[in-house]
Amino acid sequence: MAENVRPRVKAPKSASAGEVVVLKTLISHPMESGQRKDSSGNVIPRSIINRFTCEFNGESVVDVKMEPAISTNPYFEFEAKVPESGDFKFTWYDDDGSVYEDTQSVTVG
C-alpha cells in the first residue's frame, strides 16, 4: 500500500430532491507511472490508482478507468443527482490491491 494515502471529498450535506450537486475528490497518491527511473537507472515499477467510482445508495454516478497519465494526487470533479436522502460512497482501487473508501451522507429535506 502506498504510504499516507488519504482521500478527501467535498460534497454538500443537504440537497433538495432531484437536485444536481457538484462533487470534488482528491486523494494523496504518488501515481508512479512506470516511466521513471531511480538514481541507479532502474525503472521504478508502476503503482497507480487504476479505478475510481462514486455511487449513491448503491447506484452508479461515475466509474472512472484511470491510467498513469493521471497526475499525482488524483483530482476529480463531477456532478450527481440526489433523488433522496442517502450516502455517497467513493472508492479508489490501487494497483497493489488496496481499496480506499470514503462515505458522505446527504439529507434531502
Partner: peptide
C-alpha cells in the same frame, strides 16, 4: 482550499 493540493499536507 479543496482544489489546493497543498491542503493534503496540512491534513498530514
Amino acid at each position: 482550499d479543496f482544489d489546493n493540493p497543498g491542503m493534503i499536507f496540512v491534513d498530514a
